[in-house]
Design a protein around this nucleic acid. Structure first.
Lengths: 189, 189, 189, 189
DNA sequence: CATGAATGAGTTTTCATTCAT
DNA sequence: GATGAATGAAAACTCATTCAT
């Protein structure tokens, strides 16, 4: 399973029987289209510099439509974190835990991570950049998720320390932060 | 010489004999006060979420005063990069080149870097965060300076590769990005 | 055809079959309402002394609405010139060229002009006053149109000179300027 | 006596005995310098578009100095009208009344007027343009003076009508307005 | 559901005026 | 008197959000 066709690369779920009912006027995944458009635009211009109208245009919907699916502009960013980060985390867990041995696991994480950061540059950009300078509100929602992510990687380092294959004088949490930072730095190229 | 009393921790230059001679116009350090206030506020809330009036209040000046020293809000951020990053780079160069051996140098850089990122958390925050999602204009000014910084670290890795103490299958530039990312990630705590 | 129901006294074009077909978007005459309000207020207070909010209030729209139809305050003035002066010129041409003989034509011009300046005092005021002391930008747009207007009158004087019924020792262009000035001076009452 | 060295082309009054007292620090005619500078800048950019600091720079004084001689920016314009228009009127009266015959007088007025408008383009510009679109306050001061000026010319037309050499079906006041307008229009070239 | 024109609160920025030196 | 840095009230303009169609 490649990273780029991974679970968090959400694709509209196959649209079962073509045009289910009659009208089906509500294009089936307008919400999804908006999220994707938002990721793209947020990545390019940052949250604050992005106009709601730009998201709308990129998604091919009217400005007002955004407010049918999201409470407000902040909410769009929050949902990006929630939807995507959750899926990313699940995916990482599944992929990693299937592997035996701390070193192999870390290699797999790095591999996935770099693959992710390459294939989903936009998403990574949104996560890293916007995590920091956004409103209190956002931080409340997003930070816990990101923390969970770091915690997961830390847990692997922790295991490595117990097994004695990783130096013990650095806190696993610090290691996980350093790893994320390094990978993110690399991917920025 | 500690990082936190370093060259880039700009202090109004002692004003030799108080009220030197005649003119002494343009309140010598008001500009500096504004820059410092801006760094502090930008770090906390990010560039876009920061109101010019907040910078003014933090600096203890009137809103309009900002515009006596800076062209506009963008310009304030640009000058932060210009003033500070330049000084930081000079400082790093001086400190590092005085040291013999690639490994020792890298240790010193990490040491300084972590010291900086701790002692000047605000500045580091502004540099890292705002470098990414800001206006074209800013990127034009800031990115080159940041690149110079990465280039400097890359040059040390490069030397290490020639000396055979650093693996040669990764580009020095990638290494420098990874190092910055890791250190930044750590400091974020 | 009276001057005051003339072509340049723009009225929303009757909107043929009410609510024509489908779209009918962009409130058809809001732009027009704003232009009219602006002419009125500019005439009374001058361009610079007029607040955008005053135009908005006079037009019965919100401040921001102005910016849906015009780039900025300058643009409002520019469009007044463009829309109105162009129509005025067309009107004058049509009315005048239908008449035989230089003297009769000039009489008709004076008649129309005074009618205009009376019936559309506001517009005349805006044209004359604001043509002079405004920004480079405006002059670029407005002056050529005003010149075209003067040129048209000059062409009639020119014809009169060829026919020998107007003294030849004054340049037609000077005559047209003098005529405009005199009529404007009179109308100022 | 040429128009351009006329009474209303105020020159600092010869500075009697060089450097009267001792210090004489107050440059003798700073007020006059400011007025002249203001006329020049107002003519070029109009009252509203002119910054107080621009007048100051043109006059070679500090911004604050202006407020030692004038109550505020409005006051500067008011004094221009008062000082200059008064002098202009006196001058016109003296010059004209020395001449015999209505036609000769009018010729002289036109001559002077065109000379003035040429030699003192700036002043004429300020008078004509700014008379119209400025604040209530200004109009209160300036209009009466301008009216007096028109009244004077009207009186000559009036005399001409009594003498039967000027058509009687137009009000003298209208004639004077037309004359001013025509001359102003010509001079605008 | 979808639209997008309209709104107006909230920001940036300007500049006349003041006042400590 | 003269200065010009500092002030802050006032204006232009932006853009998230609403709501009639």
């Amino acid at each position: 399973m490649s990273v780029n066709e991974s679970a968090f690369s959400v694709a509209p779920p196959a649209k079962a029987g073509a045009r289910s009912k009659k009208k089906d006027k509500a294009s089936p995944d307008k919400r999804e289209r908006i999220l994707r458009a938002a990721i793209k635009v947020f990545a390019r211009k940052g949250f604050y510099a992005t106009r709601v109208s730009e998201i709308a245009k990129a998604a091919g919907v009217a400005d007002g439509t955004i407010y049918l699916y999201f409470k407000n502009k902040d909410d769009v960013l929050i949902r990006i974190f929630e939807d995507r980060l959750t899926k990313l985390l699940e995916f990482l867990r599944k992929e990693t835990l299937a592997i035996e041995g701390v070193e192999a696991r870390l290699r797999r994480i790095i591999e996935l991570q770099l693959g992710l950061l390459e294939g989903q540059r936009d998403l990574a950009e949104v996560i890293t950049v916007n995590l920091r300078q956004s409103s209190r509100l956002l931080k409340q929602y997003a930070a816990p998720l990101f923390n969970e992510y770091l915690e997961f990687i830390a847990s692997i380092f922790s295991e490595g320390q117990r097994e004695g294959i990783i130096r013990k004088d650095v806190h696993p949490r610090t290691l996980s932060r350093a790893l994320w930072g390094a990978l993110d730095g690399i991917a920025l190229t």
